[in-house]
């Protein structure tokens, strides 16, 4: 159903910490693995061992260089998957109803057996979060691991998206962003979590935590003498050493 629900019971989503993401691609591959074996058609690859390999991925990690006005350039690793927008344009454009946003948790999904593979929803998504599978010819996108987060065949602690479970740096968090008391909402509040392309009006549920300020070590007070010498001369240093040793517990009696 391509009408968006006026409100969802919960707003499940991801919070991605750009301060901590080391760009290891673990989330990319675990997502590929899980979603190849689970929900819907496998994520295929064409020419996988050839000259032009290309495959379907639901999560990709970009990297950007940021050049401050002065100071060293910085590098930011930037994972991106579906943001499960509240105002998801990909849903409303879908002619078949294959794309829909779930009322109970806000997850945006594609019902593959209804999808005609017209590609319009991928056009409508500003973030590049939808990919047409080249073999199955249906639209694939992040499912927020809907087949894990409620899965009673998994131990309780594993009922989270697989990219979150696998992230070695702990840069990915999952929870209810509709609940201001949830851990993810708290994190967003504390760290100034932000929306991507807010001007697009998509109202994304996923939030990004910006990198903390970098290279502050010598920005404190440019003129401060950092460490006070105990003596200017090596000889003086040994004198200091003698005195210092005397002051230690069990020094000179």
């Amino acid at each position: 159903m391509t009408e968006l629900p006026t409100a969802t019971d919960r707003k499940l989503g991801l919070v991605i910490d750009l301060d901590t993401c080391v760009g290891c691609h673990a989330c990319v591959i675990s997502c590929k693995g899980w979603n190849t074996e689970n929900y819907g058609a496998p994520l295929s690859d064409t020419d996988p061992y050839g000259a032009d390999p290309s495959g379907t991925f639901l999560n990709r990690v970009h990297s950007y260089e940021v050049q401050p006005e002065d100071g060293a350039a910085q590098l930011v690793h930037f994972p991106k998957s579906c943001l499960h927008c509240d105002n998801a344009p990909c849903v409303t454009v879908c002619p078949t109803g294959a794309s829909y946003k779930r009322v109970e948790d806000g997850i945006v999904l594609v019902n593959e057996s209804d999808c005609i593979g017209c590609g319009l929803c991928a056009w409508a998504c500003p973030y590049g979060a939808r990919e047409m599978d080249a073999v199955e010819k249906v639209m694939k996108k992040c499912t927020l691991c809907v087949d894990r987060i409620y899965n009673e065949n998994l131990p309780e602690e594993d009922r989270e998206p697989v990219c979150v479970r696998t992230c070695p740096a702990g840069a990915r968090h999952f929870g209810d962003l509709g609940d201001p008391d949830s851990e993810v909402s708290q994190l967003v509040a504390a760290r100034g979590g932000m929306d991507l392309m807010p001007e697009q009006g998509t109202a994304p549920v996923n939030k990004y935590l910006p990198p903390r300020p970098r290279d502050q070590l010598d920005q404190v007070d440019v003129l401060a003498p950092y460490l006070e010498p105990v003596a200017q001369e090596p000889r003086g240093f040994l004198g200091w050493l003698d005195r210092a040793l005397d002051q230690m517990p069990g020094g000179k009696e």
């Binding site: 479970r165 696998t166 070695p168």
Partner: peptide, 23 residues
Amino acid sequence: VAYIEGNRDHPVNRGVLCAKGSA
């Protein structure tokens, strides 16, 4: 083999897995 994930009880990785491991 259908799917590989990290072992949460393991002393080295405590459940996480890198890209190579998942692949």
